[in-house]
Nucleic acid binder design. Structure first.
Lengths: 201, 201
DNA sequence: ACAAATTTGGACCTGCAAGTCCAGAAACCG
DNA sequence: CGGTTTCTGGACTTGCAGGTCCAAATTTGT
């Protein structure tokens, strides 16, 4: 489908996606007009529809993919190395720092609900992101189980699911209330609870 | 401001709000046109702008208030009576049952992000809902502390914040993935963790 | 019952943003 | 190079949804 793209063409396409993503993070999906993207990226309408023949929907999908990847990349290398309690705390700190910095300008806000409604494929992207995210957390839990830092009878996937949900909710509440407290509380209490489990078993 | 409303007028206004809320739950905020609301509630454009002079934005705000109240009402009487472990589980079951039933048609989905962006006042409504919700949970925790079912040195507000975040994330993931697993995991693990705290202290 | 107020219906206006189209510039490739 | 493809710019079309307006119907209060 997407064949015959000159080097210059790919650059332009990437510029459009990145610019649109930034714009959407800043002002929300339904506040961003194609005209805004054009102005912000120095492109014309012809270009937009050249690279995204299906128009806004296709562009939104590309943006969603871009943002979904970014969410996980932003947590590296911590997320893939949850191999000790200090490592877990480093990941925790990264999350807090990251979301505190971006505040209301959250990529997820653009993806969830909004993009999800419009583009049917966006649903799949969000789901994919969540699956990958949860797997990474579960992986970390299993590693801690292998070193007896977490009780081995704990259901790693279930615990990861709970933690992931907590994070999502924490971010959601950050968006609603502007306070990071919920995210902090979830991370601290959940991680503490994982630690406590070791003593139990 | 909203003065001089005949009985009939109030009925019509209520019908519009309820109908719009239903429509939004079903298809999402930005998929619902005023025309849809008119069709669904048997009203005319003149009526819409008679009761909501500021148009869609004002209507959306009214819907947001309506839905926010409903969210808490749906959890009663359990939410206000978290006075024993069976009561907590009953509340848990109600939540699961409720969200499982409505699936993707979630009032919050209409409120969060979407309405929040458009109407500035909607942000306040969501925040207010969350505050009330969290207070109710914290109240329950404090009651359990008063009967020594939960360790008294636990920070009730912080724990309530974490649990609330977990619920929100669980619902969010239900919307994204269609599975209730995350919400279940959060509720079970968090409540278990509260129980475990009693033995510690 | 009658005047004043609300309530209702629906035709009309308007602006805007997505999408179309095409011609000219630039890049690619043998 | 020269032909072909890709890329770019921007004027134009289109549809639609929000909002305006006003006259007729109904209700209200005394």
């Amino acid at each position: 489908m997407t064949r015959a793209l000159t080097r210059k063409g790919e650059a332009t396409r990437a510029r459009i996606v990145a610019g649109a993503a930034a714009e959407i993070r800043e002002r929300g999906v339904d506040e961003v007009r194609l005209e805004d993207v054009m102005a912000h990226t120095g492109t014309s309408k012809g270009q937009l529809f050249h690279y995204f023949p299906d128009g806004k929907e296709e562009l939104l999908l590309a943006v969603a993919e871009h943002e979904a990847d970014q969410v996980l990349i932003d947590q590296e290398p911590m997320l893939s190395n949850l191999t000790s309690w200090p490592a877990w705390l480093a990941w925790r700190d990264r999350l807090i720092e990251r979301y505190l910095a971006q505040g209301v300008k959250c990529p997820l806000n653009g993806l969830l609900g909004q993009t999800g409604r419009r583009a049917p494929g966006a649903q799949a992207i969000v789901t994919g992101l969540m699956v990958r995210w949860q797997k990474a957390i579960a992986e970390g839990i299993r590693h801690m189980q292998s070193t007896d830092d977490i009780a081995s009878d704990l259901d790693a996937d279930r615990a990861a699911a709970a933690l992931l949900a907590g994070i999502q909710g924490g971010v959601l509440l950050l968006l609603s209330t502007g306070k990071i407290d919920h995210l902090e509380a979830v991370l601290d209490l959940t991680i503490d609870s994982l630690r406590a489990g070791a003593r139990t078993a």
